[in-house]
């Protein structure tokens, strides 16, 4: 039975999984070396995927060029919106991490990077998208912040 075409943008689910492994590797190197320019580069990757669109993420380009041709084609699709949302959450943590390292507040840099690494690893190893599952929680926290901002 043919499934009706889904109007929402979707992706090959193996792409984000590959991107999550790369992200995890990058974040481990950042933590081990404390070399924050690499974290800044990762922040740019998060921003491209989260705000411009998944196809603009350099990791997605690597997947398309080097990985996808070696795999069997798949009909399996995953909604793009949750993945993009998770990338933008990653961007938030990466920016805090860069600020921490660059301003000499190293513990802040380490903690923010570690949080991003947990999320990336859960996605890579377990296919569990922490940012997606916790959308309501993240939304609730950000709404609180907005209220605080307007009250001042």
């Amino acid at each position: 039975m043919p499934t009706p075409p889904d109007p929402r943008p979707s992706v090959d689910p193996r792409g984000p999984r590959f991107a999550a492994w790369l992200t995890s590797a990058v974040l481990v190197v950042v933590l081990a070396t404390g070399w924050w320019p690499l974290l800044a580069a990762q922040a740019v990757v998060f921003a491209l995927g989260g705000f411009a669109g998944l196809r603009y993420s350099p990791y997605a380009a690597l997947y398309r060029v080097f990985v996808a041709p070696r795999l069997k084609p798949t009909d399996e699709r995953e909604d793009a919106a949750p993945v993009r949302f998770a990338q933008s959450v990653g961007f938030g943590f990466a920016v805090v991490g860069v600020l921490g390292y660059a301003l000499g507040i190293t513990p802040l840099g380490i903690v923010a990077t570690a949080f991003a690494l947990v999320a990336a690893l859960l996605n890579a190893a377990f296919g569990f998208c922490l940012g997606c599952e916790a959308y309501l929680l993240i939304n609730r926290l950000s709404i609180k912040q907005r209220k605080v901002g307007t009250a001042r």
């Binding site: 933590l31 570690a114 690494l117 690893l121 859960l122 190893a125 569990f128």
Partner: peptide, 21 residues
Amino acid sequence: TGLYVALGTVAVAMVFGLLVR
């Protein structure tokens, strides 16, 4: 310190992932 944090974080993520599963 960073390296230990990296290893610890990987361990925490694995335990968390198995718990979620």
